[in-house]
């Protein structure tokens, strides 16, 4: 399950990459204005951040069988 979680994190990191690069280079977002670009950037950063948190938890699961007690 940890491995599947890692794969899911990786897929989401790819999505985050498209969001973040899209904020700077996508013509559609540039046409729509700074708010659209900022939304893409924020969305990408959030997805990347949470994907890293999931990846970290999954890596911990793979290296240790002990379940965490914190949120």
């Amino acid at each position: 399950m940890g491995l599947l979680g890692l794969l899911w994190s990786l897929a989401n990191l790819v999505v985050a990459y498209f969001f973040v690069t899209g904020a700077f280079v996508a013509k559609t977002a540039a046409k729509e204005g700074i708010l659209a670009q900022l939304s893409l950037l924020l969305g990408g950063v959030l997805i990347a951040g949470f994907a890293i948190l999931l990846a970290r938890e999954c890596a911990r699961m793979l290296t240790s069988a002990d379940a965490s007690g914190t949120a």
């Binding site: 979680g5 949470f50 999931l54």
Partner: peptide
């Protein structure tokens, strides 16, 4: 998408 990542982060362990 973000919530799903958080949901998996919380429940998988």
């Amino acid at each position: 998408v973000v919530k799903l990542l958080d949901h998996l982060r919380y429940t998988l362990p």
